Simulated scan of single mutants.
Amino acid sequence: MSTASEYDKGLPRKRAAAGVLFFDEAGRVLLVDPVYKEPWEIPGGAVEADESPLQGARREVKEELGIAPAIGDLLGLDWTAPRPERSEGLVTIFDGGVLTPEELRSIRLPADEIRSFEFVPVDELDTRLIPLLARRVRACVSARKQGLTVYMENGHPVS
């Protein structure tokens, strides 16, 4: 780790998070039910200092699901505006692909963090996720089907 210059120390900082979309054979998206907040989420979380978004995504998946599957391409990047109790941030979403039966059997949820997980059809995301996350996940699912990466602002694709 290098020492930051005075110029660098004066630059603005943004909150960063990373998540992973996993799918089953039917194309449903894996969601997790966190113990510490409502509602449901996708696997992922805050990127730590000096950690890349991909490293953060891998670490969070290991912590939340107890597995270390291959994580594929970047599906989307979402800038989120500041809102009450949250600063602005950048969220990266990676493609975890279709989980194998062996990977599914290997999932071990930490009781102090994740209550359960479930595969949910894309058209039911609004019933489980906050609107911002539902928009983000739908945009990334669409990008995945097209073999693209999507840039979003507050979950809305920007062309």
Results as ranks from 00 to 15, higher is better:
Val29Ala: 01
Val61Arg: 02
Gly66Thr: 03
Arg86Met: 11
Ser116Ile: 04
Val120Tyr: 02
Arg138Thr: 02
Leu11Asp: 03
Ser106Gly: 11
Pro34Met: 09
Glu124Asn: 05
Asp123Ala: 02
Arg15Thr: 08
Val158Asp: 06
Phe94Thr: 04
Gly147Leu: 10
Gly96Pro: 03
Lys14Leu: 11
Ala18Leu: 01
His156Phe: 15
Leu77Gly: 11
Gly10Leu: 12
Arg28Thr: 09
Ile67Met: 02
Glu102Pro: 03
Ala18Pro: 00
Glu88Gln: 04
Leu125Asp: 07
Glu38Asn: 10
Gly19Cys: 05
Thr3Ser: 14
Glu48His: 09
Ile42Val: 07
Phe94Asn: 02
Leu65Lys: 06
Gly27Val: 08
Gly44Trp: 13
Ala46Cys: 08
Glu113Phe: 03
Ile93Phe: 03
Ser116Tyr: 07
Arg86Glu: 10
Val141Pro: 00
Phe23Leu: 12
Pro69Lys: 11
Ala111Gln: 14
Arg136Met: 10
Ile130Arg: 12
Phe119Leu: 04
Asp73Arg: 14
Leu109Cys: 01
Glu41Asn: 15
Leu31Cys: 08
Gly72Arg: 11
Glu118Leu: 14
Leu65Thr: 00
Ala139Asp: 00
Lys37Trp: 12
Asp126Gln: 07
Ala18His: 01
Val29Trp: 00
Asp126His: 10
Gly155Asp: 01
Thr127Leu: 05
Pro110Leu: 05
Pro43Val: 06
Leu129Pro: 02
Leu99Cys: 06
Ala16Cys: 15
Pro101Glu: 14
Pro82Val: 02
Leu109Asn: 00
Arg83Glu: 07
Asp50Asn: 07
Ser2Asn: 06
Gly66Glu: 01
Asp73Ala: 15
Pro53Phe: 13
Arg115Glu: 11
Glu63Ile: 13
Gly66Tyr: 01
Cys140Ser: 14
Asp78Thr: 09
Thr3Met: 08
Val137Asn: 04
Ser2Cys: 02
Gly66Gln: 01
Pro121Gln: 00
Asp123Asn: 04
Val137Thr: 15
Val141Gly: 01
Glu64Pro: 04
Met1Gln: 10
Ala70Asn: 06
Leu132Lys: 15
Leu125Cys: 08
Glu64Thr: 08
Glu113Ile: 12
Ala111Arg: 15
Leu74Gln: 15
His156Ile: 05
Phe94Glu: 01
Gly72Met: 02
Ala17Gly: 09
